[in-house]
Computed example of a mutant assay.
Amino acid sequence: MIKPNALRAGDRVTVVAPAGKPDHEHLKQGIKVLENFGLEVTIGPHVFSDEEGKEAVEQQVKDLHEAFADPSIRGVFCATGGFGSAKIAPLLDYEGIKKNPKIFWGYSDITYLLNAIQKNSRLVTFHGPMAASDLNDEQRTEQTESSLSMPFVEKTAVFSDRHSSLQVLAEGEGRGHLAGGNLTLLTNGLGTPHQVDSDGAVLLIEEVGEPAFLIDLKLTHLKQAGVFDSVQGVVLGNFQVEADEEEKVSKVLRDFFADASFPVVKNFPFGHMQPNYGVPLGVNVKLTTSPPQLVVDSGVSR
């Protein structure tokens, strides 16, 4: 895997919106957070475009291509989630991205692009909080903001009970590359050239607001497609469901992974929650259950 160069204070980065138009004020607040890390922040020309359909897709692809091609830009941060990233994936110049590696950061609907770029460009990508939807003044927590230091530092990260109350669903120890993201997007990618690279992976899975029966259906779809055949571990985020659905979801997860031959740990603070810690996808990780923790190699190089 290609690791992008670490960011430094004074570097120029850009914010793009491949999954939908962000709230103006929220993006302004998120940009301020990035600037507090010493970054010079620009936004893609079409971040606030009102175009829809084919025209919107063309604009989003153009913003991404220009961001990766511009040698003065060291990082590409997504503004928000939404929908539509799957339409962008077949149109990306993966060879051009491979030749111009840099930080690519987002999650939720961006899961599709994180995995597509990781798989087709062999570039480490980052599953992490987005400028408008997570770094705004209403949502942002100190821990979420602190995770933005990850692309600045070439060092191993350890996630354990000090970050969140972790629950072991299946015992064991697993090593592999970190892959995954949002459950819906992982399921949607099955059978495409952009399907998650789960072979030998520790698989990250998170979701938001889905009822238990749909979570069960999507996990079953992944299983029957062979996604769990060769994984070395599964890291589950918080699924952010309503209180009356929470026990149903917990039971689905317990039952689904009850006989897993690999370690499974639930309630890691990634994805649609606060705090929302950033993690690099494509790097080597070690998942243990005694104690429950995830050790993650650096996603950047100097």
Rank of each mutant, 00 (worst) to 15 (best):
H46V: 05
H46W: 02
S49G: 05
D50V: 05
E51D: 13
E55H: 09
E55R: 13
E58V: 15
Q60K: 15
Q60N: 12
V61E: 11
L64Q: 10
E66V: 09
F68H: 12
A69L: 13
A69W: 14
A69Q: 15
A69G: 10
A69N: 14
G75P: 03
V76Q: 07
C78L: 15
T80G: 09
G82D: 06
F83G: 09
G84H: 02
A89W: 01
P90V: 01
L91Y: 07
L92K: 01
L92E: 00
D93R: 01
D93G: 05
G96I: 09
K98D: 02
K99M: 11
K99S: 15
N100Y: 09
P101N: 02
K102S: 07
K102G: 08
I103D: 01
I103G: 01
I103Y: 03
F104M: 06
G106N: 04
Y107H: 13
Y107P: 04
Y107R: 08
D109N: 12
I110S: 04
I110P: 02
L113N: 02
L113C: 06
N115D: 09
A116N: 06
A116H: 02
Q118P: 03
S121C: 01
R122H: 12
G128F: 03
M130Q: 10
N136E: 12
T141V: 13
T141P: 11
Q143V: 15
E145Y: 10
S147V: 07
L148M: 06
S149W: 09
M150A: 15
P151H: 05
E154M: 07
T156E: 15
V158D: 04
V158W: 03
V158S: 07
F159H: 07
